[in-house]
Design a protein around this nucleic acid. Sequence first.
DNA 1: GCTCACATGTAATCCGTTACATGATTCT
DNA 2: AGAATCATGTAACGGATTACATGTGAGC
Lengths: 178, 178
Amino acid sequence: MNGTAYVILGFLAAAPRSGYEIKSLVDVSTRFFWAASYGQIYPELKRLEDEGLVRGRDDDAGARRRRRHEITPAGRESLHAWLTAGGPLHFELRHEGFLRFFFCDELGGEDRRELLRTIRASHEGAREQLEAIRPHAQEQGDEGRSFPLHTLEFGIAYQEFIIDWAERMERRLAGGGH
Amino acid sequence: MNGTAYVILGFLAAAPRSGYEIKSLVDVSTRFFWAASYGQIYPELKRLEDEGLVRGRDDDAGARRRRRHEITPAGRESLHAWLTAGGPLHFELRHEGFLRFFFCDELGGEDRRELLRTIRASHEGAREQLEAIRPHAQEQGDEGRSFPLHTLEFGIAYQEFIIDWAERMERRLAGGGH
DNA sequence: GCTCACATGTAATCCGTTACATGATTCT
DNA sequence: AGAATCATGTAACGGATTACATGTGAGC
């Protein structure tokens, strides 16, 4: 079972959802530290159904064709087991900006500062996207789920940490000359 | 061309290397924000050779069978073009700890604090690994390449930022109750 | 003599994205 | 009428890891 399976179970634990809804929720919440695409979600929903962790039923209530997925008791158990499991946590970062920065000795001073501006700009963009999501997290908070908002606030602080670092480094390289 | 190709070009820009050496260098430097395995490096070296960005020769100097790879002028150009390219930077984070934290409303107070301790412990581990690498980065600094050390120091600060957040959140959840 | 580090590669597999194909409904 | 959104899926592809296969040389 991979992380994406638990994203699905996690959202289904709060309410039954369609695959489309799960994807939309991911896009306004977990995507900055755990993204997921349709190409994963639909096959994974089927797999979870086969394993008995999710039950899917064609939904005739609305006008539109739609498949409603519910978490099963076994699914809840599996989710809880994952949430409380010991052992190492999967952690993976791929950051092209830092990779370039690492090789910055190959560059001149102006190119270096330009790179830092690019890094800063991209994290400022990410911060804005997170800020745009805040209303959704706040709604979750109003409904008694406070951790989506905690997570979002961490995410914003995380972006700001990198932005501040880039700023400091820009100034340092500007001062030191080259 | 993917990021891993540029890791290779970046290291070859400083000195000719074998595939094995490149992998070893990655493991003591870029792996925390850009990892690479043999399964990527060897085929990628071949591909870069086919494209004329790298020249590989069987090395008879040492006793051991070994293939020595040099960057070509075209390779240097390609590296420089990548280092100074505009446009968005690839950035990807997958963090199982935050994913769990996001779904923490499903848990009780003690389980939440335990999760935060697990998150903190894993980043403390990462920080130690980075500290262990410091001598290598310092050597690079002594040889005139200062950005590996800058990058490492950022990496350590990054780990500490997350550790501090986890600590604060632990205290907050301990105080406020569940 | 044994083990560790050096050294090169490939194959299977996994995980994930992108693009495609299809179609209904709602909003303007 | 047309565009956007809701909705479900698959196929092709790419990127990366893991495990495997093989062998040499250096130091204990």
